[in-house]
Each structure stands twice: as C-alpha cells, then as structure tokens.
Amino acid sequence: MRDAAHLTLRGVALSLGGRPVLEGIDLTARRGETLVLLGPSGCGKTSLLRLVAGLLAPDAGEVQVNGAPPVPGRAAAMVFQSYRLLPWKSVRANVAFALPRLDPAERDARVARVLARVGLSRFAEAWPRELSGGMQQRVALARALVVEPELLLMDEPFAALDAQSRELMQAELLHLTGGPSGPTVLFVTHSVDEALVLADRVLLLSPRPGRIVEEVAVDFPRPRREHDPREAQDFPALRRRLWERLREMVLSDPHSDFFSGAG
C-alpha cells in the first residue's frame, strides 16, 4: 500500500485573474511520502496546494487524491503560514473546529490527545492572542493532525517563526508525521535547508507560471530526528545544487526584485 499513488497531478494548468500561475504540472506522491515544493516567491506553490486541497479547480489537467478529485476537508488537512486561528475561540475550540461531525465526547478526547502530542495541554483554555507565534502554529498543526489526515498540506508553515522555533517545529513535524502510518506530506517552502531536512523528494518550481523544472531525491536516512541530514556527507553538495538553481531563477526572473537584466 505504501507504494500506491496517493496524489496525482496530470498536466495541471491554472490561471488566476487572467494571469497564468501554473503550467504543465505533473506529479505523483506515494502514500506516506514527504514531497517538498521549493521555489522562489510567487511561483504558484500556494496555488498548487489549494488545488490539491480542492479549494481551487484547475483550468486544465486533473488533480486526484486517492483516485478522485479532492473534496475540501475530506482529501487533506492544511496548515497555513499565518496560523489562521479563530481569535474568538479557545485553543481547545480551535482544534475541535476541524471535527464538526464527531460526537462531543469522542471529539473532546481526540482534541485532548492531540494537544498533549504538541505539548499544549496546559494552554487548552487560552485565547490565541495569549500564545507566541510558535505556540499558535502548534495549535494550527494540532488542528490539522486531529482529523488524522492521510494527506497533510503545509504552506510555508514555519516561515513566520524565528530561527529557533522553526528548527524546533521542523523536528516536531518529523516526529509527528514520521512512522509507518504517517500521512503523505506536501510541504511548500522557499528555504533550501528546510526542504532538505524534511523531504523524500524536492520538486523545484520555476517563477510564474510555475513549472516543475527539477526533481531531486533526498535519500538521507530516517528517522531524521536521530540522523540530522545536515551532518550527512552529501548535504553541502545537494544544498549548493538546489540553491544555485534557485538563485539562477530568481536573478533571471524579470518579476523578481533581484532581476539584473544581464541574464
């Protein structure tokens, strides 16, 4: 089962407001695999996640999760960069929001379990504004994990955190999603290091309209909490290769701040 295709995109194209955002996207994710989409700002990575979540429909091509077009809430759980907690609900109620159809007793038990897993049991009754950014993102992660998703979509979830929190959250994510029954993860980032730490495969996207220009298998041993990939011998070479491709794309993209015009 773990080798079965969980997520398939074939020839996907998307335009938003008349501007092409994605073009000719083909990708397949095996069950339990962690795919990282790496690309410069504005390359349509977020739109790609929305397509997979079923929040957007492609203009061309097809998106399939478990062999069918995705339905929001059923196909996947999503974690956003800006946390998106409901400020008028307690931590507990924010997590429970993802489970409307469960009976209250079971829902409460599951919420309590997931809050314990992310280390926030003590803050169950707190308002979101009372928490730090890292804690708020852990609540958002708990809200995604509480539905026990088969597919976890993460849109630059740690980009707004300070360096220390980001590192801790990456380790926590590896811990929470690792294991034989862990979810398939589609993770968007523009950090090369983050991509290499988390990914089984890195897909490099070009600037708008986004296309997959390179696919890099990342074979560092797991569990990576125990074997930090950054200590692996070929980490620097891989890092340099991805970074150079990324840099090249940013410098030659006329929409980028760093466009030099020299090519």
């Binding site: 929040l55 929001p72 809430g73």
Partner: peptide, 27 residues
Amino acid sequence: PDLVEMARATGASHGRILAHVVLPGAL
C-alpha cells in the same frame, strides 16, 4: 478571507462558516 479559506479547507459548510467565522468576526 484567510479565516474563511481555513474553514473551507476543513470542509465547513456555508452555515458553519457563517456561524463560526463570519458572524463572530462581525460581532
């Protein structure tokens, strides 16, 4: 709109989005 999209991503119905996201925000 970010909160509305978050709610949609959890599969919330229009009624649920209205009751838990839009009206509390409009309070």
